[in-house]
């Protein structure tokens, strides 16, 4: 079980370590989104506290789409994906390895982006700051697990890269809502984010399970 997963994971991490394509492009893209939002909404004072959570989540979401497409586009070249389909292991391991790798990349981007946020939006965390260490990984997992699944799905179609955001964003909406509301309530300290953390955890469990179950169907779709 674990050896195939480990091989896929090490391969993806090694490629990223040598090229740093995904992290660099995501980081720059997210930074651009943050700057664009700041120009568009002119965040000051209490208002910036309120929108910062939403901007962080949306910026991560947009940035990860490009990287997730690349994760599978790389496998299409030289018919690597066909070789993986013939490999005598379950597709779930391939899927989980991809999710873990991309989860790591997006998390690194968020960590690097956090100080930029604190500066640009003059943020003070009024609630429990350590809860952010629960909310952001849960939200990122929801994004990356679904995104990896739908990227594998859309890569099999004619329009490839174009399709992923179109099918990912509607499905991701409840998780985005929960992630934004939890982050905002931690930043402003007004509300209790527990309910939203539970919702995120539930979303993660449900969709990760279904993705693992259905990934073979997508991988072998004829």
């Amino acid at each position: 079980m674990t050896s195939a997963l480990w091989t896929h994971l090490v391969k993806d991490l090694r490629i990223e370590w040598r090229s740093r394509e995904a992290i660099n492009s995501m980081l720059f893209f997210a930074l651009l989104v943050v700057v664009l939002f700041s120009l568009a909404f002119d965040p000051r004072g209490a208002f910036s506290q309120e929108i910062a959570g939403g901007v962080l989540c949306v910026a991560t979401m947009f940035a990860s789409v490009s990287a997730l497409n690349q994760a599978w586009a790389r496998e299409i070249r030289h018919q690597v994906l066909d070789a993986q389909r013939m490999a005598p292991t379950s597709g779930a391991e391939l899927f989980l390895a991809k999710v873990l790798a991309n989860f790591l990349f997006v998390s690194i981007v968020q960590l690097l982006l956090a100080p930029v946020f604190l500066v640009f939006y003059n943020l003070r965390v009024e609630g429990n700051a350590w809860l952010l260490a629960v909310v952001l990984p849960l939200g990122t997992w929801a994004l990356v697990a679904n995104g990896t699944f739908f990227a594998a799905l859309s890569i099999r179609t004619r329009n490839r890269e174009l399709l992923l955001p179109l099918i990912l964003f509607p499905i991701f909406m409840p998780a985005l809502l929960a992630m934004v509301l939890a982050t905002t309530s931690i930043l402003t300290g007004d509300n209790d984010p527990t309910l939203w953390i539970k919702l995120l955890a539930g979303y993660d469990i449900i969709f990760t399970t279904v993705s693992l179950l259905l990934f073979d169907v997508v991988l072998h779709a004829e």
């Binding site: 799905l153 179609t157 329009n159 174009l162 399709l163 779709a221 004829e222």
Partner: peptide, 22 residues
């Protein structure tokens, strides 16, 4: 949109998976 964009016989499988997710 997926049904329109995807071509070939795999579109039915992919659409069914998306239908369940949705």
């Amino acid at each position: 949109l997926l049904r329109r964009f995807a071509a070939g016989p795999q579109v039915q499988t992919l659409a069914a998976v998306l239908g369940i997710f949705g």
